[in-house]
């Protein structure tokens, strides 16, 4: 969908109370999570969140190179967020840039608090997130994928991390803005949190009043909780698939 407007004024974001893609204000886009998609990585995950397509790979714990980054008492976590040159409409110049450095840093800090790094001194846990197709909200999709990939790699964690954004378009608070809403909207606020409600990432671009912020926070937290259930289901499903391949009846209690 092409939208030609320099200011958001002549775009209507809502039609009969529904958004441009038919969602209600408090709905996130269809989310698909697949676990263990890469054979070479220790843990991996593929996530589709609406138009976003991201893949996460986890390696480690393994030896740290270069050596000087090593920590004597804990594992270090490295997170690389990278966008493929074909992930956006206009070809993105490949390689790290200011934006991807920032996203790598905040995403790492969103995940690090739940990882028991002290279990693996002098080692590194590498997380690679590749954005194959971008449609607003790639950092949250990347964090969701990375969290599942870490679990898949057998990394000890306090809990999972789920991430979701809320935004403001046409003076309405909406959950999980898509590209049009992100580009022409008034605010975008991604968060990441544990299922117990501890926030590990909170960013905001644009303007929100105090009340709007409260409302956006509530929406995003609810989104994260729903995403957590999908993450959990995907991991349990992966285990059950192992069993069904062998045509063995497994009595695993799901939920």
């Amino acid at each position: 969908m092409k939208m030609i407007a320099m200011d958001g004024s002549n775009i209507s974001f809502f039609k009969e109370g529904l958004r441009l893609d038919g969602r209600r204000a408090d709905e996130f886009r269809p989310l698909k999570i697949e676990v263990g998609v890469l054979a070479r990585a220790d843990g991996s995950c593929y996530v589709e969140m609406g138009g976003n397509k991201v893949i996460a790979a986890v390696y480690g714990p393994r030896e740290v190179h270069p050596r000087h980054l090593q920590e004597a008492t804990r594992a270090i976590v490295r997170y690389r967020y990278n966008m493929a040159s074909f992930s956006v409409e206009e070809r993105k110049r490949p390689g790290p840039d200011r934006r991807s450095y920032e996203l790598s840093k905040v995403s790492r800090e969103a995940l690090e608090p739940v990882i028991f790094t002290s279990y693996y001194p002098r080692s590194v846990i590498d997380v690679f997130v590749e954005v194959l197709q971008a449609d607003a909200g790639t950092r949250t999709a990347g964090i969701n994928a990375a969290s599942v990939a870490l679990a898949d790699a057998g990394i000890p964690m306090k809990s999972m991390i789920s991430a979701c954004a809320a935004g403001k378009v046409a003076d309405t608070i909406v959950l999980d803005p898509m590209k049009e809403e992100d580009n022409f909207g008034q605010a975008d606020m991604p968060i990441a949190m544990t299922p117990t409600g501890q926030i590990t990432l909170l960013q905001m671009d644009g303007h929100l009043t105090k009340d709007e912020f409260q409302r956006a926070m509530e929406l995003a937290i609810k989104g994260c909780r729903d995403i957590y259930e999908i993450q959990r289901k995907s991991l349990i499903e992966k285990y059950n698939q192992l069993g069904s391949e062998l045509a063995v009846v497994q009595e695993a209690e799901v939920l």
């Binding site: 220790d42 714990p61 393994r62 898949d152 790699a153 057998g154 990394i155 000890p156 964690m157 285990y239």
Partner: peptide
């Protein structure tokens, strides 16, 4: 709480057996 993605064995003590991970 569980530390890992794996199988929980509930006897007197609860152990979680990982499905993946590195040898320590």
């Amino acid at each position: 709480y569980s530390l890992l993605y794996g199988l929980a064995n509930c006897r007197d003590r609860i152990n979680v057996i990982p499905l993946a991970g590195k040898y320590v």
